[in-house]
């Protein structure tokens, strides 16, 4: 099976054929073994030894991988999954609308935008206080504020929707 792996802005094609992988025009012997009793995997690839911590992330084919102290989000999709994504058109992530959720339980202390307001990536949306610290949640992408789901003084749970952004070109 052939996969396209996305790591940050990079895309790497990896084809898995039996005990070998084809990557960058090279075939390498590769095996991924689970370390019993842990979420760790040991990867042997072309003789190189790597230990990775694999933490499943939200969405098919997505993981947070820990390696040599770094934590990296990766996504591996086969062709079918990629086609489905393409057919679904605007994926929720970069292009379309997106809801900013509370990353932790806390108290809404400030709302910095109003519905209908265009925002740039990085614009502050809502300030949530938790552990006596104020945390400003910012727009992950440019867009237009479609809905503000909370009000000042409201206690929110982890994952509660705060602000929904529509993509700038979308009508609503």
């Amino acid at each position: 099976m052939k996969y396209v792996v996305t790591i940050g802005s990079q895309h790497v094609e990896v084809e898995v054929v039996g005990s070998r992988v084809l990557v960058g025009g090279k075939a390498l012997e590769a095996s991924l073994a689970a370390v019993p009793g842990t979420p760790l995997r040991h990867l042997l690839v072309g003789g190189e030894s790597w230990t990775l911590a694999a933490d499943p992330a939200e969405g098919p084919g997505r993981w947070a991988l820990g390696v040599v102290g770094e934590r990296v989000e990766v996504e591996a999709l086969d062709e079918r999954a990629r086609e489905i994504q393409a057919l679904a058109g605007k994926r929720p992530a970069p292009a379309g609308g997106r809801t900013v959720k509370a990353p932790m339980p806390g108290l809404v202390v400030r709302i910095e935008v109003a519905a209908g307001q265009p925002v740039a990536a990085g614009t502050g949306l809502v300030v949530v206080e938790a552990m006596k610290m104020e945390n400003e949640l910012r727009a992950p992408q440019p867009g237009v504020v479609a809905t503000v789901h909370v009000e000042v003084g409201q206690a929110v749970e982890k994952g509660a929707p705060l602000v929904t952004l529509a993509s700038p070109e979308a009508s609503g």
Partner: peptide
């Protein structure tokens, strides 16, 4: 700062093998 380039290949291979396992 970008991820060290030498990490890209093992991470990509690990992700593909994890996806294969899942499948």
């Amino acid at each position: 700062a970008e991820l060290a380039p030498e990490l890209i290949q093992p991470l990509a291979i690990a992700a593909a093998l994890l996806a294969e396992e899942q499948r």
